[in-house]
Amino acid sequence: MKKAERIEKIKAYAAGQFAEDATGHDYEHMKRVAHWAASIAREEEGDPFMCEAAGWLHDVGDRKLTKNPEQALKDRDAFLLSLSFTEKEIEELDASIRDVSFSKGRVPVTRTGKIVQDADRLDAVGAIGIARTFAYGGAHGQSLYSPDGVKDSFSHFEEKLLKLASLMNTETGKREARKRHSFMVQFLEEMRNDIHITDEGVQHHDK
Rank of each mutant, 00 (worst) to 15 (best):
P69C: 06
H58E: 04
H29V: 14
A41R: 11
R63F: 06
L81W: 06
D75H: 06
M30N: 14
L65N: 03
A41E: 06
E52A: 11
F102N: 07
A34N: 12
F102P: 00
R32S: 14
M50H: 14
A38F: 12
L57P: 12
E45Y: 07
A41C: 04
A95E: 13
F49Q: 13
E92V: 05
E91S: 13
M30R: 15
D59Q: 08
K88H: 00
A38I: 12
P48S: 15
G46Y: 04
N68L: 05
L65H: 02
T66W: 01
L93I: 03
K74I: 09
F85M: 03
D77A: 06
F85W: 06
D77W: 02
E92Y: 01
S101A: 07
S101T: 02
K74L: 12
I97K: 10
L73D: 01
E43P: 00
K31F: 11
C51F: 14
H29R: 15
I40G: 08
F85R: 03
E89Q: 01
R76G: 02
V60N: 08
G46K: 13
E70P: 00
R76S: 00
D75T: 12
A37F: 05
D75W: 07
Q71W: 09
L93R: 03
E45D: 12
R98Q: 12
I97D: 06
S103H: 07
D99Y: 14
E92F: 03
A54G: 09
R76D: 08
V100E: 06
K67W: 03
C51W: 06
R76M: 00
V100W: 08
A72Y: 01
E92W: 05
K31P: 02
